[in-house]
Amino acid sequence: MSLRARIAALVTALVVLGGISVTYVMLAGRRSTVAASAPTGSLDPGRRLLVVIDRHLAVVPAGDDTGTVAAVECVRAYAAAGTGVCLRQRNPWAYEVVVLDGAYRPRRTLEIPGLPNRARVSASGRMVAWTTFVGGDSYAGGGFSTRTGVLDTRTGISVGTLEQFAVIREGRPYRSADLNFWGVTFAADDNRFYATMASRGGRYLVRGDFAARTVTVLRGNVECPSLSPDGTRVAFKQAVGGDPARGWRLSVLDLATMRTVATAETASVDDQAAWLDGATLAYTLRTSDGTPAVWAVPADGTGRPRLLVPGAESPAPLG
């Protein structure tokens, strides 16, 4: 496959599977009310929101849409307990994962293939995960697939792709050459996690065990899960009518009953939402020209959406 054809395939993938990364790569110069400065703030816990504005980290005080942009370039980011993860462009054709400390200083850097799409840090700050879109896998008819990696920052153990994990479906081992994973979210024990698995035209919520290197399929039509602070619910984007071409409805799944509640946000949410607290979700929406903004909505289906930070994306509550 030629370079031009591979790039075209990647762009198509981003449109179909969650076209965030292509916007990161192609859009620049979006303006907001946040002022640029040196990275004098921190990622330490507090009532603040970490976002990405103009491809740079920004920390916004709770209840305010103004703040400070750090001189740290990222296209996707997340942070918890004083640990940050930044997916950034290393050169025009390559990206990397950078693990940051509370003062934005790099602790570890890993090269990653493809275009950045998702990033997560566990509540303790120990575990870091990322997802990219990559091209060239032989099983992918369109010339693309996802690649999701996980790093244990305490032990230094990393997994380059969840495709290495054994899959259990309906109590039996499941094997397929077309497995893809994306959108990791961690449980409080820093071992269990949830993610999306795609195979043979379906998309499924899976529960993973990092130590055992296994994932178990739980149910279908769940993408980009985000575990609630108490570990009982998963916010996710649900394909309307089971068809991603019709858009996604931001919804919440009760893990005990498997009951789903749609939020009051009726716009198509193509994002991995973040829990601001036990009752509220934050997420990115884009205008027709690609301009992002961070919004919030109650997780129980009540209320209505409200604008949090114009011109921003990739929200992560710092505490």
Rank of each mutant, 00 (worst) to 15 (best):
D254C: 05
V309F: 08
A279N: 14
G247D: 07
G114S: 09
V51A: 10
R306V: 15
R249P: 03
A119I: 05
L17I: 13
D300C: 08
L227Y: 01
Y139R: 09
G303Q: 05
G82Q: 07
A123C: 06
A77F: 00
C74R: 00
V75W: 02
L49I: 14
E163H: 09
R31H: 11
R105E: 09
Q238R: 15
D300V: 10
E163R: 15
R55P: 05
V206G: 05
S288T: 14
I112E: 02
F144I: 13
A299L: 04
G67V: 02
R233V: 02
P310C: 09
P61Y: 07
R55D: 12
A312Y: 08
Y194T: 06
L17G: 14
E73M: 02
A293D: 04
A245D: 13
V51K: 12
D44I: 03
R6G: 12
S314I: 04
A123M: 06
Q89F: 00
L205S: 13
R55Q: 14
G63A: 03
A94K: 15
G202W: 11
S145K: 08
G201T: 12
T216F: 02
D230T: 10
A195C: 01
R259E: 08
R169V: 06
V60E: 07
R219H: 07
R192N: 04
I168R: 12
V269S: 09
V150C: 01
T33S: 15
D54R: 12
A28K: 13
A273D: 05
W93M: 13
T153L: 00
